[in-house]
């Protein structure tokens, strides 16, 4: 079955007909030619497909495209394109701290970090937050916990932590 939807991806609006089985991830990667979000598991278990969907970090492999008519998607490529610099500050921090090796988890880590910093700023607690009322302070434990939905098999966690710590400060 087919359905027509509109999706804005990295600032560009796409009106497109999709198979109702198509995920947002496959729509991006296989129809719209945006391979910035990666497919590591297709089951919501690795985080590599993370984008900002209507401003929040979201696993696109678990999102059916037809259910997101009218949504706005920002991928890591879009974060870079929208920055004054060539890179978003979070991306720059990932480079400076070598928070990557193969790079396959990286666009998802970047989107997750950007989304997470926003959540923290809005006062969302995490599993390791003691005071649920206060605006959480992003210490290392908070960062690790909040980034744990994004696996990195290359084991770049130390660099990612340093990158997110720096981004959180600025």
């Amino acid at each position: 079955m087919q359905a027509e939807i509109t999706l804005t991806v990295d600032g560009t609006e796409h009106r497109t007909t999709v198979d109702t089985r198509t995920t947002v991830l496959d729509l991006l990667r296989e129809r719209l030619g945006n391979t910035s979000p990666k497919k590591g598991c297709d089951h919501g278990q690795c985080g590599s497909c993370t984008v900002l969907l209507d401003g929040r970090r979201h696993l696109t492999c678990l999102a059916l495209a037809v259910a997101h008519d009218g949504a706005e998607v920002v991928t890591s490529a879009g974060l870079a394109a929208a920055s004054d610099d060539e890179l978003h500050p979070v991306q720059r921090a990932f480079l400076d701290h070598d928070g990557l090796q193969c790079g396959y988890c990286t666009p998802g880590q970047v989107c997750s970090a950007v989304g997470m910093l926003d959540e923290a700023e809005q006062g969302h607690p995490s599993h390791v937050t003691d005071d649920l009322e206060a605006v959480p302070e992003l210490d290392d434990d908070e960062i690790r916990e909040r980034m744990s939905g994004n696996l990195c098999r290359c084991g770049a966690y130390a660099g990612i932590l340093a990158a997110v710590r720096e981004a959180a400060r600025s």
Binding site: T35, S36, P37, K38, L100
Partner: peptide, 21 residues
Amino acid sequence: RLRADGPAKVTGLATYAVEHP
């Protein structure tokens, strides 16, 4: 020296096998 392909990787513009158009 920072990773030469770092910018392509952090943005996701680096294309992996099946992603090649």
